[in-house]
């Protein structure tokens, strides 16, 4: 069992794929066997399945938080709230899955979400630099979790 699982969440549509792109860069440059990586396409409630049997989960996703597009955010588990009730199997997103896992006591010991603000323009895409910054943040998080310095190629 790996100590940390990094989950990139997204879809093939525009900037919603940021989580996948960040993971691609991480997996090609990170040298550790204690971290597993997985990219998921809008997993809905199934996200809970992928957070089992691991102590720390790092989620990477595109977010809309009203910030300047390209802004990076780091949210702890208790900062991730679902603001609306859910009435659709299709509308069950990351926040709802986490809220459900919280109620069921099914969340990992440590859960962190890194998000990159995409804004409302569907055509907007992040710069390569933004993705690199996101990668650095996640790498630092992983290093802190492992209590060691990890080598990034």
């Amino acid at each position: 069992m790996t100590a940390i699982r990094v989950i990139g969440i997204g879809s093939p549509f525009g900037s919603d794929r940021i989580g996948w792109d960040a993971l691609d860069r991480l997996t090609s440059g990170l040298d550790t066997s204690e971290v597993s990586f997985i990219s998921l396409d809008r997993p809905g409630a199934s996200l809970l399945e992928y957070m089992q049997d691991v102590k720390t989960v790092v989620l990477v996703d595109a977010v809309k938080a009203g910030l300047e597009p390209g802004s990076l955010v780091r949210l702890k588990e208790d900062q991730i709230e679902c603001s609306n009730s859910v009435n659709s199997t299709h509308g069950f997103g990351v926040a709802e899955a986490i809220a459900l896992g919280r109620e069921l006591g099914n969340l990992p010991e440590k859960l962190v979400l890194f998000g990159l603000e995409t804004g409302d323009d569907p055509e907007w895409m992040p710069s390569s630099r933004s993705i690199d910054e996101l990668k650095e943040l996640i790498t630092t998080e992983i290093a802190v979790c492992l209590g060691e310095t990890i080598r990034v190629n």
Partner: peptide
């Protein structure tokens, strides 16, 4: 109102569903 609210009172049933 939603599944999260139901999970508070019916956790085992929701876990079974998952």
């Amino acid at each position: 109102d939603n599944a999260m609210a139901m999970a508070k009172e019916y956790p085992e049933e929701v876990k079974r569903g998952l």
